[in-house]
Design a protein around this nucleic acid. Sequence first.
DNA 1: TCCTCATAGTGAGTCACGCTCACTATCGTA
DNA 2: TACGATAGTGAGCGTGACTCACTATGAGGA
Lengths: 155, 155
Amino acid sequence: MSVTHYEDDARFAAALDRILLLTVMLNDDMNRGLAADGLTPSRTSLLWTLRRIGPCPQKAIAAAMKISPRTVTGLVDGLVATGFVTREPSPADRRAVLVTFTGKGTAAVDSLIEQQREFGRQLFATMPPERLAGLEAGLDDVLATLHALGLRSPF
Amino acid sequence: MSVTHYEDDARFAAALDRILLLTVMLNDDMNRGLAADGLTPSRTSLLWTLRRIGPCPQKAIAAAMKISPRTVTGLVDGLVATGFVTREPSPADRRAVLVTFTGKGTAAVDSLIEQQREFGRQLFATMPPERLAGLEAGLDDVLATLHALGLRSPF
DNA sequence: TCCTCATAGTGAGTCACGCTCACTATCGTA
DNA sequence: TACGATAGTGAGCGTGACTCACTATGAGGA
């Protein structure tokens, strides 16, 4: 099992390098796009989470994003100041607030979804179907391997 | 050309989602690993850059990493304090310093390389060769498309 | 009822990292 | 020599992550 195969190793390393390069490039590109909308990466992540779990107390956002409640306070401060969300009183618990989208916030998230959809078209529309299928199969395999290694999806 | 194909769109979006999920998971995992070595992501990036371009003045590091010279000062401060690099006087220019690996710094980078290689083995060693080939072809296609869209590799 | 413990959120303080602006020291050239 | 360009840093700001201590409120039990 532990016999070393140098050629395979080099091939695996090259494949991993491609994935990591893609990782860096996509991250950079997405963050550039966000700044144009007046959003930071973390605030955008919060909006995305809020869309998924709906209006909720900050505690729930902290749990969903796996960050501290104190950090959520700061992010919500910024999003309130820039008009993407509001803090509404919780009818059930006077200690809690319900973080809620404004119209601007809803529009921003809808815009992000459409941008991502358009980006998907740009990336894949010209790709031969069998190559896309091969890519999807490879990605699924990698994700399954990561899962088996103990890495869990953040969602 | 601009006829909308909803099913294709959904498939493209799903493929992009997979890539972005992989992006997030790999980033998280690598950053977790770094902290164990007493390194932050940015300091690690600097070490990686330094390995690529060799001992050099901070100005060159700033250019290679596309960050400001002032930020490099701070990162090098941290790496000097934790013993990964030293600032050596430049023989050619008394204004400049040469950022240079210590033994600990060299060992840390070698360790990172080996960790990455091992990770590649874990990800791909059990993958059927034709599936790996399909993944590589798909990734190359995506990277080429990104290049055509104007996104450039940071290296 | 009242006391206690748990919970939601925030103030204060810390650290990493990105930035700009102003400054010193040095280089290179006219 | 004198002047403009260059290498690096001090000062200060903004974002975003953390912990710890604190207030206000909720929920039960004695």
